[in-house]
Design a protein around this nucleic acid. Structure first.
Lengths: 187, 187
DNA sequence: GTCTATATTCCGATAGAC
DNA sequence: GTCTATCGGAATATAGAC
């Protein structure tokens, strides 16, 4: 415990990287143990199952996401700048991670709605993203076009989601960058 | 061969259902054999590997998608009606399939860009979808807002993609139905 | 915390008899 | 086309010694 990197953190971080890059099902416990360079006994001491590791992974990524977003947005003044910074963050995320997509969209596609715990974690994460956009869009008080805040939220949220998926498919962020400009023009 | 349902078709159809509903990795050869009610020897006579089955599955779904779309759009007169019919088709697809999402987005999330053949099949499918939207949007000759055909294509395409992902996550098509109205208002 | 051994089950794939 | 047997490996998870 304390300030040191715990064994638990090492396991979770290794699992997160592997789950994200090669998928949950395709990642084996043995591989996590080997790459984290820990004992298998330690893994099952900290996590009761591979499924439990998955839940912790998703919870961690949700916290990491919104912590970083908060930091980025705090550096901007106007809600419009904050919205653009949010989209920039999504773009940078993809650029940094070799356009591997969104942790939650990926796990949803892989596990689907067969696991209630996973479904809830994914739904909550996406709801929080949408609420953030809604808050910023409302603060901007849009008047350029004929759409109200709720409609603009729906459009911008789904465009970003679609743009992230496109990044995963094409291996680049061109679509997301277009969407940033289009959202700016739309609102 | 001929008009009868061949063993190959039975294998492919069973594999398609299982790949779609429970994922490619999680679906075993033995399960396909059992549910298709055929011999494992027959499977490996028609498909040289599980990977080969995956390629055939994606090719089949691409053909099935655009064949159906063509039929639906042929029943409409104006490009605007055709665009709305296209979105309706995407909505109906999700409603029929318990909101399990898009075959190609799912397999992309699962396999990612690690398999070149899969990546190309997914990219081509999405490019064809986007080109169809572009064709219809261009024919509508939009003038309502300040966006040109290319921009509107990007917006509508990514909104639909995001809407399909939202359907997968939430288990309903509310977002997609909103997007249909928004696209209609936008163009 | 480390290590190894192991139980059990499943995987994709092949071979051969009918 | 059917069937069964089997190969080699990997999966999750547990147990015990240090």
């Amino acid at each position: 415990m304390g300030r040191k990197v715990t064994v638990r953190d090492k396991i979770l971080e290794t699992a997160a990287t592997l789950f994200y890059n090669q998928g949950y099902v395709q990642t084996g416990i043995n591989q996590i143990v080997a790459e984290a360079d820990i004992a298998i006994g330690s893994l099952y001491k900290h996590f009761k199952s591979k499924n439990d590791l998955l839940y912790s992974y998703l919870e961690q990524e949700d916290i990491r996401f919104f912590t970083t977003v908060e930091e980025k947005l705090a550096q901007k003044k106007t809600p419009r700048e904050k919205l653009m910074a949010y989209i920039d963050f999504r773009i940078d995320q993809q650029k940094t991670g070799n356009c591997t997509g969104c942790h939650f969209i990926k796990i949803n596609a892989e596990i689907g709605r067969t696991d209630d715990e996973v479904q809830q974690l994914v739904q909550k994460h996406k709801e929080k993203q949408k609420n953030l956009i809604k808050k910023l869009v409302t603060e901007i008080q849009p008047s350029k076009n004929n759409f109200d805040a709720k409609q603009l939220t729906e459009m911008i949220f789904t465009m970003i989601e679609g743009g992230v998926v496109a990044a995963t498919i094409n291996g680049n962020t061109r679509s997301l960058e277009d969407i940033k400009k289009l959202a700016d023009k739309l609102i």
